[in-house]
Nucleic acid binder design. Structure first.
Lengths: 350, 350
DNA sequence: CGCTTTCATTGACACGTTTCAAACGAGCTG
DNA sequence: CAGCTCGTTTGAAACGTGTCAATGAAAGCG
């Protein structure tokens, strides 16, 4: 970006640069895209011309000609969720390394917006996308792939395999280690505060939780009660408090595992309003290990996912696919980790 | 998006649609962009052809021809900060209403990334941008405007005026009402836990705080101590705890006003680690009223900004500028609001 | 009926870039 | 010196769209 005020706001393109440097447009293009193929002397001349004219490439031209743009989409369930913003950082860093721009698109957890965003990616002829599908209906995404836009699924193991690459954290194991932690503390009756079961991650975490009880010789059907909420945000968590406590002190669960941290934070707040103390009266666990999990009091016991790494890996897989469209699709599976803080404690019989 | 599997992945453009519908390409273009100018009968025919061929517009072509793309940039200081994600929602909603796509670009609080992102906007010939400048050095942004890309400044009042539109919340008043609240509680010695003073908002909040003391007949220089941290995140807040408490119990401030909620959350956590109780031992105030401010215990007293509305207003101003490039620049100023929760309490003399 | 006005449609061109076969020149080899 | 090769550069031809002056058709008017 030259600091000299350009007196003539005249459109300057590759051809004008060529003229100014005394070469052909083709050469300028080469300097821009494959510098190694042009002689050092001419390259220098062209580079000077570029600087002097304050030329800035028009990516519409490139994309039109080459059929693909040089930006990738990051289709995210909900920008508001800190989990995704961490992932976004990972994707960005890896994309930048390859010179790709990231456009962040927000589905806001609705199918219609996801559809609009997919449409957008197709129209832009995006190089590719990292996608967090809003639910199990993948038809729009498959359409996108037929249009020639590759994507890798994020946190959706089942989507990988035949259709493409995927990166995810083992949600079954996550539910399992969460359950083991609670069982280890003596809890034999817990509630799973869930999001919509149409979301795969939610289903798997629940299944893992059940399995931990089975593995301990307890009957999952008796031990874990499920409360399904329509969304995964703090407000829903707070509103769930009545149902969680329904049935009076005797029926009250000793511990609640929430489908994600957002729900857990809301629940903790709601419990506080009711005058219940965490973890003395009731233990609460989250899932994700969002930054804020460490900031509330007591700290939220939760299951950590390698968020940043998840984003990096996804973008790396996408890069691989762009380099070699015929490559073998990969399914990367990360392992979750238990993070114990203050919100869970040993069960105290009433 | 037709569900029929297209057997021929043949590139279908506006011309092929035209042929299929028995009209000229120009007419198809009109159907797409100015439907009112084409007779109902032909329009229907064209629309059917579009559906049958599963045509998807190539935005590279449009942008190339028209010189501008149909997406706007949202240049944000830090995607990780919940404040911005709220703003993003507002911008998105308003942009969608006008058929513009929003690409979210993250400066990660560094000048270099901001520069790269600005470059990107120029190369994409973005229709416009909503920008949160990383600091007072606006040269890159002015360059962008010279390139023909309009932008409106977000939360940067001083940037508006001659150079363009701006939308912000009155940070001076924000600091003022925060200070009045603390003074009302009897605090006469407070600490301002600040971010970099290169950020305008920070300076103004500080100035407002000082003014509140002056207005109460107290000497600002004696009453408010400043602690400057290099970034506005929770980690910095937590790390600041030593300095806040420096000098022992007698010197300890009765209250701390933080430059934003992130800092405050970190500080509260740090104080907890030190065994200090909020607000009994020390009062803490944040700024922004991020969602999480309500989720910690005690709830964080803070200054609320109309985040979503801020985003909407900014995008609306941008729309106005795009409609009429010669329009008079506007400076919109929102008012902050005090939100009292549990983290502040009356001063107790030691 | 001849004239103008209005409305719909046409068709060619331009936008800025990449690509690729072809041309060029210099250096080598026999 | 003719013949080759290799490294560099050229020039023209797309890519898919929007624009606009021109054309055609239909309608309104005196």
């Amino acid at each position: 970006m030259s600091s000299s005020a350009s007196p003539a706001p005249h459109k300057v393109g590759i051809t004008e640069v060529a003229r100014h440097a005394g070469v052909s447009p083709g050469t300028v293009s080469n300097v821009l895209n494959r510098p190694e193929r042009v002689a050092a002397a001419t390259r220098l001349r062209v580079e000077r011309a570029i600087a002097e004219l304050d030329y800035v490439r028009n990516s519409s031209g490139s994309s039109l000609r080459s059929g693909r743009s040089s930006s990738v989409g990051l289709l995210v369930l909900d920008v508001t969720n800190p989990f995704f913003t961490e992932v976004a950082r990972g994707v960005e860093d890896e994309a930048a390394a390859r010179g790709l721009a990231v456009v962040l698109l927000n589905s806001a957890e609705t199918h219609e917006r996801q559809r609009r965003n997919i449409r957008l990616l197709a129209e832009q002829r995006a190089a590719g996308a990292v996608v967090m599908p809003v639910d199990d209906d993948l038809s729009d995404l498959l359409w996108l792939r037929r249009q020639g836009t590759a994507w890798v699924a994020l946190d959706r193991g089942d989507v990988g395999g035949e259709t493409g690459c995927s990166v995810s954290v083992d949600n079954l194991v996550g539910g399992l280690i969460a359950g083991r932690h609670l069982i280890g503390l003596g809890h034999e009756r817990v509630t799973f505060l869930s999001g919509p079961f149409s979301i795969e991650q939610v289903r798997l975490r629940h299944e893992g939780l059940r399995r931990s009880f089975a593995e301990a010789g307890l009957d999952p059907d008796a031990a874990v009660r499920v409360l399904e909420r329509p969304q995964l945000n703090p407000e829903q968590g707070e509103r769930a408090v009545d149902e969680v406590l329904a049935g009076g002190p005797r029926q009250r669960p000793g511990a609640v595992l929430c489908a994600n941290d957002q729900l857990a934070l809301g629940l903790v707040k709601g419990l506080g309003r009711r005058g219940l103390r965490v973890p003395d009266d009731i233990s609460v666990m989250g899932y994700d290990n969002v930054d804020f999990a460490d900031l509330i009091h007591p700290g939220l016991t939760t299951v950590a996912q390698p968020k940043y790494e998840l984003g990096r890996a996804a973008m790396r897989l996408l890069n691989a696919e762009l380099d070699d469209p015929g490559h073998a699709h990969e399914r990367l599976l990360f392992s979750p980790e238990l993070v114990v803080r203050g919100s869970t404690a040993a069960h105290r019989p009433a």
